[in-house]
Design a protein around this nucleic acid. Structure first.
Lengths: 219, 219
DNA sequence: GATAGTTTCATACAACTGTTTGAATTGCAA
DNA sequence: TTGCAATTCAAACAGTTGTATGAAACTATC
């Protein structure tokens, strides 16, 4: 119990490698080489490769959710229970976008690991991932409080689209950068968040009556 | 040269398995078992596993791009060179969404394979995938013709967001279904396409002056 | 129907995977 | 220091992977 240094080294190396190259391309031998520990240490400390991944995912998942909920609570407290929809959306996509695109390298690794986890959906993660649904439900509820006139189905679509835009921006930002010839600035994280939040807000509010949608059709 | 049946059987089985379970989870032995051919047939007909994947990707990539461009051309011809932005966006996201969510199982396999390819980005695909950029550039140009007042940077972001929403709907539609308790109907493909197109259109047109964005901020 | 070229097949190969083993080493309490 | 548990280590394990081999089966041409 004296030194958990080995454990920590494995966790750090694994997270970084998984974030960079994905789960299927990283072997235990890659991890132990990066962590400078013995091969058997992984099984000794974690039991198996899957349990290592699961522990990594659970830890990061809890941290991300806590950060989101903290921002959501702050926004709702400020508005005495009803936060502006933009604030709700920002608390949903902000932490991940800031984590992945921001300058803090340690946070970027953590955030990118979570993106990998949501993309590759390797077995040990798939089992745990259902909890995320209940987490997202709390945001759907908060969005419903912000927009009481919007139908429930539209709330879910808006939540889905917001996550889609944030997610894809992180995952395929490189393509957007190439496509636009560097015109789209991904380093200005706040501007990116604002774009995602604005786009999602428009999708949510325009659907309310259908009039805005029809207007857009004619434009 | 008499029977290319083996070749075709391998291609079909491989595409289906890759679409269902992803690249890293499917082995050559899985493929040849599903295709009812000998293990060595893959290397005999394609040279290697990577070349099989590459051929599959190139074929499907060309087909998808052709379908998109056909719809785009039809829309632009009808408007004498300037299609409504909704029509341009529909020609961009329509083929893939219809393919993945529609009832045609063969098309669904092809479309889901392409989604896998864009997600997992396995080495043999990564090399070819750069061509996609130039394909998307043609849509950015068409969008620019539809919305001459919108800044180029906003066009790229709108294109990016449209693909993001379509993409994520296919990839994680199951989560949306669970989250909404079945409220969000993914089987009504036209309705899904309309949602994506409308949301992207709003994001594109609202950014023009910034007023709509500000209005949305107050809502 | 013999021959040459193509395609199939069972089998083996070398490399790599996650995991296990048992001995060596370490750290700490008595 | 002695003794005991926790940890590290090199080595090997069994299983799977993509690929290669050479013989067998087939097909078409003469």
């Amino acid at each position: 119990m004296a030194t958990d240094r080995t454990r920590a080294a494995i966790l750090n190396a694994a997270e970084q490698l998984y974030a960079e190259r994905g789960f299927s391309d990283v072997t235990l031998r890659d991890i132990v080489a990066a962590a400078n520990v013995n091969l058997a240490a992984v099984n000794y400390h974690f039991g198996s490769k899957d349990e290592l991944i699961a522990e990594l995912f659970v830890t990061r998942s809890i941290a991300t959710n806590r950060e989101r909920l903290k921002e959501l609570k702050a926004a709702e407290d400020e508005g005495r229970g009803r936060a502006p929809i933009e604030a709700v959306l920002r608390s949903l996509v902000g932490p991940t976008l800031r984590g992945c695109l921001g300058p803090d390298r340690e946070r970027a690794t953590a955030a990118r690991f979570m993106i990998r986890a949501s993309i590759e959906a390797v077995p040990p993660i798939r089992k745990i991932r259902n909890r995320e649904i209940s987490h997202l439900r709390r945001f759907a509820a908060a969005m419903g409080r912000s927009l009481p006139d919007v139908a429930e189905v539209d709330i879910y679509w808006g939540l889905h689209f917001a996550l889609a835009m944030a997610h894809q921006t992180i995952r395929d930002g490189e393509r957007l950068d190439k496509l636009s010839g560097g015109l789209c600035d991904l380093d200005d994280v706040d501007a990116v968040i604002a774009r995602v939040v604005t786009a999602a807000t428009l999708a949510l509010t325009a659907r309310r009556t259908g009039a805005a949608g029809a207007k857009a059709q004619r434009a």
